[in-house]
């Protein structure tokens, strides 16, 4: 198995919508390279034929009935909004 190329903090931070300063990017780059080197050890383990585990419980079909429950009032829903107007959550203009 070939080693994956190392982490590009600038690119990944953009994916994660974190606008890092240059200083932060540099610092994280060093720290995360070290961490990535550490986690790379799992790749030494042969996992051929092993099923992945996504959940800590082995159950399925846990669903709910299609029955209505009370909603929040518009006032409650908007109470924490940083910017609101006319019953809407406001954001800078979205350009399509």
């Amino acid at each position: 198995m070939s080693a994956p190329s190392s982490i590009d903090v600038g690119y990944v931070a953009q994916l994660a919508r974190l606008k890092l300063s240059e200083e932060e990017t540099r610092r994280f780059q060093g720290q995360l390279e070290q961490i990535v080197r550490y986690i790379e050890q799992i790749r030494r383990l042969d996992v051929a034929g092993i099923e992945p585990t996504a959940h800590a419980v082995d159950r399925s079909n846990v669903t709910r009935d299609d029955a209505a429950a009370p909603s929040l009032s518009s006032e409650e829903a908007l109470a924490n909004a940083p910017v609101r107007a006319n019953g809407l959550f406001m954001v800078p203009k979205v350009i399509e």
């Binding site: 994956p4 990944v12 994916l15 994660a16 990535v36 092993i50 099923e51 992945p52 585990t53």
Partner: peptide, 26 residues
């Protein structure tokens, strides 16, 4: 967040995330 984004990102998902899920099975 950056580490987690990285291990799920295209090209690394299988090498890290999927692999770790299998280690979890073990």
């Amino acid at each position: 967040i950056i580490l987690g984004t990285y291990v799920l990102s295209s090209g690394y998902h299988d090498a890290y995330y999927l692999h770790a899920q299998k280690v979890r099975t073990l």
